[in-house]
Design a protein around this nucleic acid. Structure first.
Length: 114
DNA sequence: GCGTTGACTCCGT
DNA sequence: GACGGAGCCAACG
């Protein structure tokens, strides 16, 4: 990976998240070569306008959705995740059995909520 | 160049 | 599991 700017690497890391899986801000940042820059990931997502970007697969380290429960983005993120087979309960993400099966190989690249 | 801000994380309670 | 406080870092005015 080369001379891409931090922002581009963050976007690439987010796009690399497979459908039906989720990743944490810190995990995305680390994957982008920016350990500890979770806050930068958050800013990139806020500024991002690319409809192709699976931003809804990015969650906080706790598995909680980063938006306030009464927010618009919260509702949309929940709906998108459910559409991909991710079980969302009370603003928290839970992994379905089918996804749980794949988890072994993806451990290096993906993170799953407890 | 400084102070504020934030879709964060870690740790203790 | 939920809450509060401290730390970090880049963007913005």
């Amino acid at each position: 990976m080369a001379d891409l700017s931090p922002v581009d690497r963050i976007l690439a890391a987010i796009r690399a998240i497979p459908r039906g899986e989720v990743a944490g801000y810190g995990h995305v940042a680390r994957r982008a070569g920016l350990p500890g820059r979770a806050r930068m990931v958050a800013r990139v997502l806020r500024d991002n306008t690319d409809p192709k970007l699976p931003w809804h697969r990015v969650l906080r380290s706790d598995g909680h959705i980063a938006f306030p429960p009464d927010s618009e983005g919260f509702a949309e993120q929940t709906q998108r995740l459910r559409a991909e087979g991710v079980d969302v309960r009370d603003g928290r993400v839970r992994i379905s059995d089918s996804v749980k099966d794949l988890d072994g190989d993806l451990d290096a690249a993906l993170w799953r909520p407890r």
